[in-house]
Structures are given as C-alpha cells and as structure tokens.
C-alpha cells in the first residue's frame, strides 16, 4: 500500500506536542530558506544556527508525540505525512521571510514568547516537555538577544532600515494575539500541570517587546484585529507552499534516506 497522509489520534497531549513541534519545524524551515542568501556571512550562519535549534526542538517533540500516540510513528511521519489542515502551528511562524527586517522581527516576536514559555515549561508534569524546556529556554535566550540587537540596529538605523522594520512590525503584529490563545486542549493540560497558561506569558513578552522597540525608536502597533486559526489547522495561504517544498521529496520517494 502506498503511504498517504496520516490521521493522528489527537488526544490533548498529542495535539499539544504537535502544536509546539509544528511551530518549531515551520519556523526552522523558514530560517533554512535563508541559507546562502543572508546579507553577511555571519548572519547566514546565525539564521542557519537558529533554524537548527528549532529543528532539534521539533524532533524531540515529534518523537515524544509518537511515543504518546503509541502507533509507532516517528518524527518523519508527522513532518512529512500530514497535510496543511493537519498542521497546528501559529500563523506567525509560517509567514514568508519577506525582507531581512520581516525575518528578524518575526523571529524576535516568537523568541520573546518562546523563551519565557520554555522556562515555565521546565516545571511541566511531563518529564520530556520539561527536559525539552531546559534546553530550549537557553537556545531561545540566544535568539532573543541576537534578534533584539538587530531590531535596534534596523529601527534606529537609516531611514530605509527604519521604514522596513516599521513595516515588518505592522505586517506581523496581527499574528501575535494567537501566542496567548487558550482553548480546551490547553485548559485540560493546564489543569493537569502539564502546560503553562499562556496568559501568564503576556506580561513578560510585552516587557521584552516594549523595551526593545523603545530602544529601536519604534512603536508597537495599536491593539486591533488579531488573526487566528493555526492551532485548529486553518492556515494562511503560505503554509501549503512551504509544505509542498518540504514534503515533496518524501512524498515522491517514500522512505528515501541518506
């Protein structure tokens, strides 16, 4: 039988793990699209390194999802054999790279959230999530620091860099509401001591964002309409294109390996 898209039995914990793994995989893939194209050699390596951190986090989370689901699926099954509607990532992380400012602002907005998120998850009742958290919070701290330096340099730079940083912020801001969304899956796991309540992350996220934007002489866009849907598989048009590229080789040559 030819392999086809898989149907995942989405218990709360499996869904939760896939959401976090998908965030990391999709954002890591976006960063990998920069390889060989970044403005400087150092930045090329930085973007690739950050992408690698995220890919590593995704692999550990998918592997754990496979164990919890108990159907013998490995990380590749989740990455390559789910269609767009099966992906549970935030809309923010699937947005296209745009120019360098868009990539940096997207990474900054995500990392400023992911760092306190993973630090809080070190106390998770799920031992694997806690262990992933212990590694990821340090990695995300490096991402925050690196991206914050760039946000300041771009915002407080030339008229051109400032205009691009401001445009990136305006474009990506409507995707930040989803970071703090809570649904039934979250509530079940928060009650079980496995998940952190994302509402508690809003304050540390805002503190980092406001502080860095102030230094960059940029202003946070006013509160307004927030886009949502990624956690339930309703994505922007960009994810399908990303998956087409990422999954093409495995779908054309199932099981291909190096």
């Amino acid at each position: 039988m030819a392999p086809g898209p898989i149907r995942v039995a989405e218990t709360p914990l499996v869904s939760y793990l896939l959401r976090r793994a998908d965030d990391a995989l999709v954002l890591g893939h976006r960063l990998s699209e920069w390889a060989g194209r970044a403005p400087t050699m150092e930045e090329d390596m930085a973007l690739a390194n950050m992408g690698l951190d995220l890919l590593g986090q995704a692999r550990m989370l998918y592997a754990h999802a496979g164990e919890v689901e108990g159907r013998g699926r490995d990380e590749d099954a989740f990455a390559y054999w789910r269609d767009e509607r099966g992906y549970r990532n935030l809309l923010l992380v699937e947005q296209p790279n745009g120019d360098f400012a868009v990539t940096i602002v997207r990474q900054f907005l995500y990392a400023a959230y992911a760092e306190p998120y993973w630090r809080a998850m070190m106390a998770s009742g799920d031992a694997t999530l806690a262990a992933v958290g212990a590694k990821a919070e340090k990695e995300m701290a490096y991402h925050v620091r690196h991206c914050a330096e760039w946000v300041v340099r771009l915002g407080d730079g030339t008229a051109e860099s400032r205009a691009r940083a401001a445009a990136a912020l305006t474009e990506l801001w409507p995707f930040t509401g989803e970071l703090f969304e809570v649904d039934g899956t979250d509530r079940t796991l928060i009650a079980a001591g496995i998940a952190v309540d994302p509402q508690t992350l809003r304050e540390p996220w805002q503190r980092t964002v406001i502080q860095v934007l102030a230094e960059a002489t940029l202003e946070a866009p006013p509160a307004g309409f927030m886009r949502r849907g990624g956690r339930s598989g309703r994505h922007s048009e960009h994810l399908g294109h990303l998956l087409a590229e990422m999954q093409h080789l495995q779908r054309s040559n199932p099981g291909a390996a190096w």
Binding site: L52, D53, G56, Q57
Partner: peptide, 8 residues
C-alpha cells in the same frame, strides 16, 4: 545526552 537540541 544531546548538547544542543539541534546538535547534528
């Protein structure tokens, strides 16, 4: 045990 999450 891995050093970094993405250690190749």
């Amino acid at each position: 045990t891995p050093t970094y999450s993405g250690c190749p």
